[in-house]
């Protein structure tokens, strides 16, 4: 049937194929104008910063300063540890929230309500000053100390950031778990798999596809939020940058330096997120998207094949 119509249509079209249309394109003058205005504004902002009383040379001078590098390391450490607490806590809270036990689900609800509803800076100060409530920490024979010497800046920062993060991660994980079709649980149960195995082997791997993108967002957010812990005496990138700024007489320059470091780290994290997402996409799309590296190689391949053709 289709073959017949093709045959019938074939003689009418010339052998060289249909003639390409050559027409005068519409000129979008508005576009030119807005582009010029935008570039002009950008240039004036850059010029203003260049003209300001900012000693730009201080930035490269201190960019790889030992203190800055230590600060970068501590910021990364704090981000990773806080996110680990946040993710583990979030999964536990999400499972509690979805459990049939009304007590555990209410507790999880209350936790999320409280930690999501108060600013993280306030939480950090509360953790730091809990010595007013607990004078000592006494874990029987294992550990006993004054609260003030137990609650180091690092522990304060970790608890403050991690527990707050757990509340957000709980909602993200819950959304992920709910996104998995109920038929998956049924099929797994019908095969004789236990609740725990079903969750671990079947539901969570599928939930990850939904959980990873917002979690990447959370990691990047967390990296930036760590700058708040300077308030509870923890030394990280922002705090070190401030200190250098006060001693070297270039305080504002050091803020730019810190901003540059934060940008570098968040950029690297975004690349990492791309690959994690790609990993969990297996099975959900028929063909995985190519990695940037694969795309580059494919282009190189097409260039070389073109050369061969010429």
């Amino acid at each position: 049937m289709t073959a017949d119509t093709e045959k019938a249509a074939a003689p009418e079209t010339p052998a060289a194929g249909p003639q390409a249309i050559k027409a005068v394109p519409v000129r979008h003058y508005g576009r030119y104008l807005t582009a010029v205005i935008a570039i002009g504004l950008l240039a004036s902002i850059v010029y203003a910063f260049g003209q300001g009383k900012i000693n730009w040379h201080a930035v490269p001078d201190y960019f790889f300063d030992d203190r800055i590098l230590t600060g970068v390391g501590k910021t990364l450490l704090l981000t990773v540890l806080s996110m680990v607490i946040g993710i583990v806590g979030g999964i536990v809270l999400a499972v509690m929230r979805l459990s049939k036990n009304p007590v555990t689900s209410s507790i999880a609800w209350f936790y999320i309500w409280f930690f999501r509803g108060t600013p993280v800076l306030v939480q950090l100060f509360v953790w730091f000053n809990l010595g007013l409530v607990f004078q000592y920490i006494n874990l029987g024979p294992i550990y006993k100390d004054y609260w003030s010497s137990f609650m180091t800046p690092l522990l304060t920062a970790l608890l403050g950031l991690g527990l707050n993060e757990a509340a957000y991660m709980a909602e993200i994980c819950r959304a992920g778990l709910l996104a998995v079709d109920e038929g998956q649980t049924e099929a797994s149960h019908a095969l004789g798999m236990s609740h725990a195995k079903t969750l671990r082997r079947i539901v969570i791997p599928q939930a990850m596809r939904v959980i990873v993108p917002p979690t990447g967002n959370e990691v990047i957010n967390m990296l930036k939020t760590t700058s708040l812990v300077a308030a509870v005496q923890f030394q990280e990138l922002f705090r070190y940058a401030q200190d250098i700024g006060q001693n070297s007489g270039a305080p504002v320059e050091m803020y730019f330096l810190a901003a540059a470091w934060y940008l570098i780290m968040t950029s690297i994290l975004s690349v990492g997120q791309y690959y994690v997402e790609r990993y969990y996409a297996r099975g959900s799309s028929r063909q995985l998207p190519a990695t940037p590296w694969q795309k580059v190689r494919a282009h190189l391949g097409s260039f070389s094949s073109r050369k061969v053709a010429v």
């Binding site: 049924e186 099929a187 297996r282 099975g283 959900s284």
Partner: peptide
């Protein structure tokens, strides 16, 4: 099952 319910991952 009617809708197969294979594990997609």
């Amino acid at each position: 099952f009617q809708r197969f319910n294979l594990f997609p991952h």
